[in-house]
Amino acid sequence: METEKHIVDDKKNILIWVDLLILTFVTVEIAQFDFKTLTILIALGVATFKTILVGYFFMHLKFENRFFKTMVFLCLFVLIAVLAILFIDYSYR
C-alpha cells in the first residue's frame, strides 16, 4: 500500500476547494433566514456535504477499498442517528 501513488490532478483539487468556499458562503448567508425546523437541517446538511467532499477527495477516501468506505459511512450514520434522536427532544419540547 505504501508504494502506491495516487495521481490527483491539481485542477480538480482547486475546483473542490472553490466548491467548499461557495458552500461556506452559503452557510453564512443562509443563517439570516429563519426556516423554522428546517434551519438546522439545512445547516447540518451543507456541513455534512462539505465533510464528505473533504474526506472523499482531500483525505483520499476515494482510493480506499470498500471496507474503509463502509466503516466511515457507518460512523457517519451513527452520528446522524444520534443527532436525529436528539432533535426528537428539541422539536417536541
Partner: peptide
C-alpha cells in the same frame, strides 16, 4: 449509542423523546 436519554427522564425532556 441511542439510549442515553434514559438518564434524563425527569430533566424536562419532551414526552416523545422520553418514549423513544
Amino acid at each position: 449509542y441511542f439510549v442515553w436519554g434514559h438518564h434524563m427522564f425527569t430533566s424536562g425532556m419532551s414526552g416523545q423523546a422520553r418514549v423513544v
